[in-house]
Structures are given as C-alpha cells and as structure tokens.
Amino acid sequence: MGLFKRLFGEKEIPLEEPVQDRWQNIPPYIEEREYQLASLVASAIAASDSNSDFVVKRVRKRNPEAQLVSIIATIVATGEQPESVFRVTSIKEEKLGGSNDVA
C-alpha cells in the first residue's frame, strides 16, 4: 500500500519561499538620532506651566521613502476620481536576495 501511495498519491509541490516571507514592511517613521534640539523645543512648547516636568522618550522622523511612495500611490489612485480621499495603511517592498531576483 505504501508503494501505491508513493506512486499515485497527491504530490505536494514545495514553494521556493512563502509569499509572506518575500515582503517586508517599510516603516512610516524612522528613529531620529539628532534628538536633543527637537526634545528641547517640544518640551518648551508643552511646558507652558513652570511646574511641569517632561521626559521625551523618543523622537521619530517621517520616513522619506514611505512618504514618497504613499504620495505616488494616492495620485495614481485618484486619477479617475479627484474628489476621493485615500489613506495608506501599510507599504511593503520585496526583499532582495531571493532566488527570483534578476541581476
């Protein structure tokens, strides 16, 4: 019976890589290293009362790549209906180094 299963059984074709593993998210914000001036300005604006203390945990900057891609995608999508409004929730790019890449 094992012989017939091997010869005539369903054959699974293994995928080279799962589809979800081929894509990676582009973050909408990136960590900003030069945060001393930004945290000082933000704390000064927020602390209008002299009795307040603020701790800035992180300062992030808008990712220019994600911003450009979202603008282009929105322009293309609104080509037919200029009065419509779109919201980009995630941007993904294909990972490099896969077996399907062409050099």
Results as ranks from 00 to 15, higher is better:
M1K: 10
G2I: 13
L3F: 11
L3R: 13
L3A: 12
F4G: 01
F4T: 06
R6T: 09
L7R: 09
L7G: 09
L7K: 05
F8S: 03
G9N: 05
K11E: 07
E12Y: 11
I13Q: 12
E16M: 05
E17I: 11
E17T: 09
P18R: 06
V19Y: 11
V19S: 13
Q20T: 11
W23H: 03
Q24S: 06
I26F: 07
I26M: 04
P27E: 10
E32I: 04
E32H: 12
R33D: 12
E34V: 03
E34S: 08
Y35P: 00
Q36I: 12
L37H: 08
A38E: 02
S39A: 15
S39K: 02
L40A: 10
L40G: 03
V41L: 12
V41P: 01
A42E: 06
A42L: 14
S43P: 01
S43D: 04
S43E: 13
S43M: 06
A44K: 05
A46R: 06
A46K: 06
A47P: 02
S48G: 12
S48K: 12
D49T: 10
S50C: 09
S50I: 15
N51R: 14
N51S: 15
F54P: 03
V55N: 14
V55Q: 11
K57S: 05
R58W: 06
V59F: 02
K61R: 15
K61T: 07
N63L: 04
N63G: 00
P64F: 07
P64S: 13
A66F: 05
L68M: 13
L68N: 10
V69E: 01
S70W: 00
I71F: 09
I72N: 08
A73Y: 12
T74P: 00
T74V: 03
T74E: 01
I75Q: 11
E80S: 15
Q81K: 07
S84C: 14
T89D: 00
T89E: 00
T89P: 00
S90E: 07
S90P: 01
K92Q: 13
E93R: 15
E93L: 12
E94T: 03
E94A: 07
K95Q: 07
V102D: 15
A103S: 03
A103P: 01
